[in-house]
Structures are given as structure tokens and as C-alpha cells.
Nucleic acid binder design. Structure first.
Lengths: 199, 199
DNA sequence: GTCTATAGGAGGATAGAC
DNA sequence: GTCTATCCTCCTATAGAC
């Protein structure tokens, strides 16, 4: 998790977020109890509330941190990639994947348990996600305009396909698995950009 | 839902599954209460238990039905496709996508809330899913052997990419949206097989 | 096959001492 | 900043009448 993510939080509050995200990924937000979170931290359940105002607050902070980290990771990679539309798209996939997998517990929680947020907070998280996806759609549209991305489908539809390819990864990625984050990015980008068929 | 899915269930029990799956997709399994399910059916909460032995039973039946429908849909499509490895892979994507979207509430619940099953039932559902994914991996491996699928990555890794591309669809697909199931299959297959870059 | 009533437990959150 | 004790609500599931 970036320092930026937590620059205004105490060290304990930050540990709570990290431990909670690990539990949320494993058990799901609704199934995880505040008692389990406190036990992971070695304190009593009531002590949590000195640092956090509610369980839903934890979810909210995790969603914001996850979205911000991926957005920053992808956009910095693209900014460093120069002007070539294909290079920019490859950089987006690489930056997105590395940021997502560096904090896979956060990304997983955000994508699958976002629905447990209530009212305004849900709308805010959805709006942030939509803003990011619209930015990605712009990269694809630029590629189409330059003639390097196929135009059989709209940029909107190709963006749906892009996030299909990227998002599901958190369900099977393991830090101790066969593939490094770089290799995952290379695999997914290779398929998305060039396909699996020869010729 | 296929008749096969439910040939040994009463009509009411089947309605309960359908209504429960719709609620589970919208709210999540853990958040959905038996009261909400019973209200969707127009009966009292206690009356549910005449048809179903527990809330978890509902989830279990939904997972089994979802897996079986997709597996049957994909395998029948492949059987009808003949011997060409590329045709067989295209048929798999088409059959899988149509079956998944025909019962998107079931597929969504299976893929996201499977983790709420306990013990033996979870293992059983995971084993069925793994069996299906291994079958799909075999189609890809056959394509590699025939030289029509790239061999830069292993069949296992290309299969991870395939289900990335397919599974996330249920998070955004809407029956009243822009795309028909056929168009979704064409979009996702087009990207997976041939990529989005020109040339 | 559906109902009313209730058991029995767990969950999130708070009060107030230390 | 952490603790013990407790409140209050809501949940799944069952009992037993109709």
C-alpha cells in the first residue's frame, strides 16, 4: 500500500486496514466479523472502535485505497510510455496489473464487496471506478483513431473486454504461485492485444 | 434454467431457486435474508422451510445448476462443431457465453458466493468447476498441438486468460442492455482469439 | 402447504473503568 | 489505547396450529 494511501492515518489504523482486507478477501466482507479482525490484530473487539468508526468504514477506506493505487499505477506507467498509442496501451495493462497484484487483497475486496457499501459511499466508489474505466476507454479510442486498434467493435465494448481480462485475475493470483506480476501482465496483455490464434 | 436442472424438484422449490438467485446476485448471499426471499415469493419466512432445508441448501443447488448448465452448453456446442481445433474453441466460447448469460443470476451467484458454502459442499463445487476448466484446457492444448494456438504460454496459462475473459461478463451484462448474448460471445471470442491490435 | 409465535444465537456497536 | 460488560437488533431455523 502506498504511503499516499495512508498519509493521514495512524499506524494502527493502517494495520487494521491491511489485516481486514486480508480477511475480507478470504471470507468476504459480510462473513468477516469484527471479532475476527480484532483477533488478527491481537486486541479486543471493542478496541477496534478507538481507531475506526464502523466496519463499513473499513470497507470504504479499502475501496478508495484500491482504486487510487491502481489508477495511479496505470496512469504513471502510461505517462512514462511516450506517445505511441500501442505503447501506451501496453503500459496501461502493465501498470494496472502490477498495482492490482501488489495489493491484491485490497483490489479483491473493492471489486467483489463494493456492493456492501450503502448509499452515497457506494455511489462515490462507483463513480471513481467509472472515471478510471472512461480514462482507459480513451486510450483505446486513441488507438482506433491512429488505426492500430481494430474498429470492428466500439471503444466502449473493447474496454469491457479489457477489464474482463484484467479484473478476474485476483481470483486466482497467489503471491507464492507460478507467475510473477510481470509475467501475469505479459500473459494478459499478450492475449488481449494479439490473441491466442496463430496467423 | 434447463428442465434437467430441476427435474426432481417441485415447482415451488424451483421458483424459490430462481428468486433467490436474483436476490443473491443483487445483494450477495450473506446479505440476503430468508425474509427477503420469502417476500419475493409472497409467503412467510417459515413456509420456505417446507421446501428447502436451509439457506445454504439454496446456494448449493444454485451452484450445481449454474455449473451444469454452462458445462452442458459448452460441451454440446463443441460436440456440434466438428473436428477443427479452432472451430471447437470458438464453439466453446459461444456455448459457454450463451449458457452463462441465459442464467446470469445463477452464474453470478456461483462464481462470487461459492465461498460461503461450507466444507464438503464447497469442495464438491470447486471440483466440478475444476473439471470443467480442465476440459477447456484440453481444447486449448489440442489447438497448440495442431499449431493453430500460440505456444508461447502454456495451455494452463491460456486457460486462465480464457476464463478471465469469460467470467467477468456477469458483472456488467444486462438482459436489457446494448448487447445480445450472441454479440457478447462474438466480442469476447474476437478479442481472445485474434486480439485488438491491427496487423 | 402456509401460518403465528418463538427459540437460540451471533453480530455490530457503545459505556465507562483503568 | 485497551479492557470488561452489555445493549439491541437481526438472523436462521423450529414448533405446532390450521
Amino acid at each position: 500500500m502506498s504511503d499516499q494511501a495512508t498519509h493521514d492515518r495512524g499506524a494502527t489504523a493502517q494495520r487494521i486496514l491491511v489485516d481486514a482486507a486480508a480477511l475480507f478477501r478470504r471470507l468476504g466482507y459480510e462473513r468477516t466479523t469484527t471479532r475476527e479482525i480484532s483477533e488478527a490484530l491481537g486486541i479486543r473487539k471493542a478496541s477496534l472502535y478507538h481507531h475506526v468508526s464502523s466496519k463499513e468504514d473499513l470497507l470504504y477506506e479499502i475501496c478508495l485505497a484500491a482504486l487510487r493505487d491502481v489508477e495511479v499505477g496505470a496512469q504513471e506507467a502510461v505517462a512514462a510510455a511516450g506517445d505511441d498509442p500501442q505503447d501506451r496501451l501496453r503500459a496501461m495493462v502493465h501498470g494496472h496489473t502490477l498495482a492490482m497484484l501488489a495489493n491484491v487483497n485490497f483490489s479483491h475486496t473493492m471489486l467483489t464487496d463494493m456492493r456492501s457499501l450503502s448509499g452515497e459511499r457506494l455511489q462515490q466508489v462507483v463513480a471513481l471506478r467509472d472515471r478510471y474505466e472512461t480514462w482507459a476507454e480513451g486510450l483505446i479510442a486513441a488507438g482506433q483513431k491512429a488505426g492500430v486498434v481494430k474498429s470492428k467493435h466500439s471503444a466502449k465494448q473493447l474496454t469491457l473486454g479489457l477489464f474482463n481480462m484484467l479484473n478476474w485475475t485476483m481470483f486466482w493470483y497467489r503471491a507464492d504461485g507460478d507467475l510473477t506480476p510481470d509475467e501475469v501482465a505479459e500473459l494478459l496483455g499478450g492475449i488481449y492485444f494479439d490473441g491466442v490464434f496463430t496467423g
